[in-house]
Design a protein around this nucleic acid. Structure first.
Length: 205
DNA sequence: TGGACGATTGACT
DNA sequence: GTCAATCGTCCAA
């Protein structure tokens, strides 16, 4: 039992609950960021790494709520996920973007750039936190990267949209972000944060 | 054992 | 707006 057991819940609820919470990395000089954009994935989701069952890469996703899952994207980038749900279920929340709160100098050093562009994407955030696959499976309760739980964000501040960069189940509205937050990622193609609020944001309220 | 692809980013036009 | 970088994992044979 840990203070993160509340993440043992439906992944979409957990995803919304994680908005506004903070991630603290003590891998190097302390870095602390506030989560502003997430996406939900679970084992029934064709776009999820866990859809085809457990394997060596995604084993961390089956460890249960409160663990960290890190994977490599496009052979280059590292992306961070918060594992949710019960042990053996293969559900988690991708942290897509965050707002730097502490250790901004370290983030700038790792990223080679500063400002909004330093943490407004999943690969960027992974680099800013110093994450890599060696951290996959570690505990977010007392591991090198920890989750700081904050008060829930009011529903009216949460926008909903379709997920980014996937080809399967791309229509599912399982992306959640803080409405109007400048650190929410922008990307090519699909409706971005500004338009999603009017096009795909019905579920957000 | 070999071929295709990916929960992305950044540079260039 | 368009495209290259880059490599582990998965699926087919």
């Amino acid at each position: 039992m840990t203070r993160l057991d509340f993440l043992n819940a439906p992944v979409e609820w957990a995803a919304r609950r994680l908005l506004g919470c903070e991630l603290v990395s003590d891998i190097g000089p302390r870095v602390r960021v506030r989560i502003v954009e997430v996406e939900a994935y679970d084992e029934h989701d064709e776009a999820s790494h866990t859809f085809r069952g457990q394997n060596a890469r995604n084993a961390a996703m089956f460890l249960g709520a409160g663990h960290l899952y890190v994977y490599r994207s496009m052979g280059i980038h590292y992306c961070c996920n918060v594992v949710t749900g019960a042990e053996g279920h293969g559900a988690g929340v991708l942290i897509r973007a965050a707002e730097p709160l502490e250790g901004i100098e370290e983030i700038t050093r790792r990223r080679g750039r500063e400002g909004i562009g330093a943490t407004n994407g999943p690969g960027k955030l992974g680099q800013a936190l110093g994450a890599d696959v060696a951290l996959s499976g570690s505990s977010l309760d007392d591991g090198p990267i920890t989750l700081v739980v904050r008060d829930p964000v009011p529903d009216e501040e949460i926008a909903t949209g379709v997920r980014v960069g996937i080809s399967k189940a791309a229509e599912l509205p399982r992306r959640f972000y803080l409405r109007g937050n400048p650190y929410v990622s922008r990307h090519h193609g699909a409706p971005g944060p500004r338009r999603a609020a009017t096009q795909a944001g019905h579920a957000g309220g």
